[in-house]
Design a binder for these strands. Structure first.
Length: 846
RNA sequence: GGGCGGUUAGCUCAGCGGUAGAGCACCUGCCUUACAAGCAGGGGGCCGGCAGUUCAAAUCUGUCACCGCCCA
């Protein structure tokens, strides 16, 4: 086969990508005609690389975007990247350490930030190029960055406004301290992991001198910060001790014994040491009981001055060992046992999170949450699959303060200045001398929360903002429903007075083929760009759409291969149509039966496809396309075209519609096929959507179905008798006069011809009656085997139908048409059995 | 501890009240001038266990088991 006979994605895809980028169609006109349709891409990390989740999500968005663009909407797919504070800073710090052995502190803030910007310049474009390889038609000409000038202005403005409204405040509060990062992180950046620790039991003697309370802990060093012991008030063992005090070993502090329902009497000894400064639950309990919070571990991970002198400055782990030893020596260590439990770790640095009290900036989100709850409850924002709406609501209804400040350098530095006890919060900075700016930066997700409108120029009233806010759809992964989606809804409602988008599609998570998480560190990642190199972007897109679902799915190479086969098939089908003289254009009213049938099937597919996209059912849409192209267009319609039973004048326009239908899923190959068909420069990218070439034609569909059954039965018959394709058979239909049996069609598809068939013909039962076949040679043994199998099958069916009909309850309660259908079946199988048995007897069987 | 998913053919997944489906894999034939990255034919499933509801259950209810995720 010549090289030109094969579709080559690596040749085709770069050409069409360039044509799309040069077309100007990706940059919409805010004052142009049509409905506005906007999607904001979940901005990938600026230093990141495309992973499979991106590939799926951006394929989905591109399908939506291309569909609407072809439908004539003014379409904007907002393009950009996220500065990703922690991730980016970590990468640059690592690079700095490797190449120069220096830390960011060696460089100083300003020089380090310069370094990050340089890094961004050098590597920031990678993922954008990869999105282009995928065929994603973002508005690349207007790429935004969450730290570009206009965006930064929007971020600071929102912070200042929230401060002025009283939502944002500074407080000493329990935070998740990431000891690896040296920064506070939000609840959402914490993940729980199972860890094997040692649970030690410590006896706290009662001040009365009579008895002791034994508490259990995996962090004995935190006892130095204990300010109470808690028991359950209903606990018969300890209830009477409430109000008394005990003595903290090693320190000698008197601790009140308090009663609190939080304590589970069944757990451990039933008595709980309370360390308000180093445990979130104890912190809450401390507030309930007005306990002092003594911070004994500092932000540097070492013991503070609040502990007895001999422990001060020790790293917490060392202090733990020492405290344990001293407790043992003091004879108050009651037990030590291995203990598996979950503890918080930083999602970013991987370090164990140290809960401690720290002075940070917080946002109280309770007021912002109310309208955002209402928006989902009343359907202004709709989640697909629906259950994620409930997840969103559950989180929103119990929303907690958001720790906004991060002890990082890369990010939006807080617009906050201090001078003595004075605090100034403002976008432009204070006047006068002596002000010192807060060194912290904002949580990355604070700026991400403004993405749907800050990218459109807000707070300026730009034409883009006017036209494209709100966006229509947000498509994203479920793990950032709280981190990102919820924040966008709250921010959008607060600052624009409107929801940022009306539809939220939560796509499935693509796991590694073995079911593990796809991740670089596990080595389970599959690089989408490599898959594109191997199979082409269309194949990957199709494969991902086929895989996608409402649930997690494993990456499936076979689906990509299936996509590649579809691409090849479509290309070859197009070549055939062109070779037979098909040209594009309006479809003439089809006259021939096969043309009428294909036009009707295509019409059905177009309607079905539209509704599937509306429901975000991309998997079924891909499946629909696959079977339309393979089973209907190629296997039947084109075969009939070759047999002269369909016309190129209709085939050309039908192919054009088919390509338009497939373009959003398979943009590259359809573009290639379209130019092969049309010979024009017009792009499929901006072609009008597929439009129904005809109305549904029930008669043509039913007739072709009968023909398909005829052909399939004959093929099957030939196969069972070991007859080759070239072996001609003669056939006659009985009680099937309405069945279409064009001589050329039958000859072309099965090498059969209609003839007067008399004695010795074999009977093949069919739903329209029966087919009499006269093969060139008769293999009686095969024929008897075939008949036996057919009889057994018919008997089974008849027995099932009769059993149903013998059930009085079924006959009286089931819908009448079902009962009627059963009766028809029973009658049909009865007569079929009769002819088959007669045939078997004639064939020498019994 | 609370919640949400899942368990269907060898594999990956659809179906979610009316006789079990797809792709891949497998078996048997075919180089039929669009396509061998192809064509035709075929085999393969007590739809996790148990108990209910119903004329009818893979589908609805309850329960148990195992797998995964989220929240505390």
């Amino acid at each position: 086969m010549a090289a030109s006979d094969r579709y080559d994605p690596s040749d085709s895809e770069p050409r069409w990508l360039k044509a799309w980028l040069d077309s100007g169609a990706l940059d919409p006109d805010p004052s142009g005609p049509g409905d506005a349709y906007a999607i904001a891409i979940p901005p990938p990390n600026v230093t990141g690389a495309l992973h499979m989740g991106h590939a799926l999500n951006n394929t989905i968005q591109d399908v939506l975007i291309r569909s609407r663009r072809m439908a004539g909407d003014q379409v904007k797919w907002i393009c950009g990247t996220d500065h990703a504070g922690i991730a980016t800073q970590a990468i640059v710090e690592k690079d700095l350490a490797q190449k120069e052995g220096r830390s960011r502190h060696d460089l100083g803030r300003e020089a380090f930030l310069e370094r990050v910007w340089e890094w961004r310049e050098e590597y920031g474009g990678t993922i954008i190029g990869q999105l282009q390889r995928l065929g994603a038609t973002l508005d690349y000409g207007n790429e935004r960055f969450t730290m570009d000038e206009g965006y930064a202005n929007a971020v600071l403005r929102v912070f200042v406004d929230m401060y002025e409204k009283g939502y944002v405040y500074r407080d000493n509060y329990m935070v998740n301290w990431d000891t690896g990062l040296g920064s506070a992180i939000s609840d959402l950046e914490v993940e729980d992991r199972e860890v094997l620790d040692t649970l030690v039991e410590i006896a706290y003697p009662l001040s009365s001198g009579e008895g002791e309370l034994v508490v259990a802990t995996v962090r004995p060093e935190t006892m130095l910060g204990d300010t109470a012991v808690a028991v359950n008030p209903d606990d018969e063992r300890y209830g009477h001790l409430i109000g008394q005090t005990c003595v903290l070993p090693l320190v000698g502090r008197e601790l009140p014994i308090i009663g609190d329902d939080y304590v589970d009497p069944e757990f451990g000894t039933g008595a709980l040491k309370v360390t308000p400064a180093h445990d979130p639950n104890d912190f809450e309990m401390g507030k309930r009981h007005g306990l002092e919070a003594i911070s004994v571990i500092g932000e540097d991970g070492a013991m503070t001055d609040a502990v007895p002198e001999r422990y001060r400055g020790l790293p917490a782990a060392e202090c733990q060992a020492r405290v344990t030893e001293e407790l043992r020596a003091a004879g108050v260590l009651r037990g030590e046992e291995p203990y598996t439990h979950t503890v918080p770790f930083s999602h970013r640095s991987g370090a164990r999170v140290e809960p401690l009290i720290s002075l940070q900036w917080f946002a109280d989100m309770t007021q912002l949450a109310q309208p955002a709850i209402a928006a989902v409850e009343d359907g202004r924002v709709r989640f697909t699959p629906e259950r994620w709406g409930d997840v969103y609501l559950a989180w929103m209804r119990e929303i907690r303060p958001w720790c906004l400040s991060r002890q990082l350098w890369w990010g939006h530095q807080l617009p906050v200045w201090y001078r003595g006890d004075e605090i100034y919060v403002g976008v432009d900075g204070p006047e006068g001398d002596g002000w010192v700016r807060d060194e912290d930066v904002l949580d990355t997700w604070f700026s991400s929360g403004l993405w749907p409108f800050a990218t459109l120029g807000w707070p300026e009233a730009t034409p883009e903002l006017e036209r494209f806010y709100p966006n229509q759809v947000l498509s994203t992964a479920r793990d950032i429903i709280f981190l990102w989606v919820a924040r966008m809804v709250m921010m959008g409602l607060e600052y624009l007075g409107e929801v940022p988008f009306s539809e939220v599609y939560i796509h499935s998570v693509i796991q590694a083929p073995d079911g593990r998480r796809m991740s670089k560190s596990l080595g389970t990642g599959i690089d989408p760009v490599e898959v594109i190199d191997e199979h082409g972007a269309d194949a990957l897109r199709f494969g991902l759409l086929m895989m996608s679902s409402a649930q997690d799915v494993r990456f499936n190479h076979e689906r990509v291969a299936q996509g590649r086969q579809l691409v090849t098939k479509l290309w070859n089908a197009s070549r055939l149509v062109v070779e037979r003289g098909g040209t594009p254009g309006p479809c003439p009213t089809p006259q021939k039966l096969a043309d009428r049938w294909m036009a009707s099937r295509l019409t059905a597919a177009i309607e079905e496809s539209e509704s599937l996209v509306r429901e975000f059912d991309f998997s079924r849409q891909a499946d629909l396309l696959y079977h339309l192209i393979f089973d209907e267009f190629a296997d039947w319609y084109l075969e009939l075209l070759k047999a002269g039973e369909a016309t190129p004048q209709v085939a050309g326009p039908l192919l054009e519609q088919l390509l338009a239908l497939a373009h959003p899923q398979l943009p590259f190959v359809t573009e290639e096929c379209w130019h092969m068909l049309s010979g024009s420069d017009e792009l499929m990218l901006t072609h009008a959507s597929a439009s129904p070439p005809a109305s549904r034609d029930a008669e043509a569909e039913a007739t072709i179905e009968g023909f398909q059954e005829l052909v399939t039965s004959l093929r099957s018959y030939k196969s069972e008798h070991g007859l080759a394709r070239r072996d001609r058979i003669e056939v006659r239909l009985e009680a099937g006069e309405g069945v279409w049996s064009p001589p050329d069609g039958l000859a072309g598809l099965v090498n059969a011809e209609m003839a007067e068939v008399g004695e010795g013909a074999h009977v093949v039962p069919a739903s329209f009656g029966s087919i009499l076949v006269l093969p060139p040679e008769i293999d009686m043994q095969a024929e008897r085997a075939r008949l036996d199998a057919a009889i057994t099958a018919a008997e089974k069916e008849l027995a099932r139908a009769e059993k149903q009909l013998g059930n009085e309850q079924f006959v009286s309660r089931a819908p009448a048409e079902l009962v009627e259908a059963e009766r028809d079946k029973a009658a049909r199988y009865t007569s079929e059995l009769k002819t088959l048995r007669a045939q078997l007897a004639a064939a020498g069987g019994k």
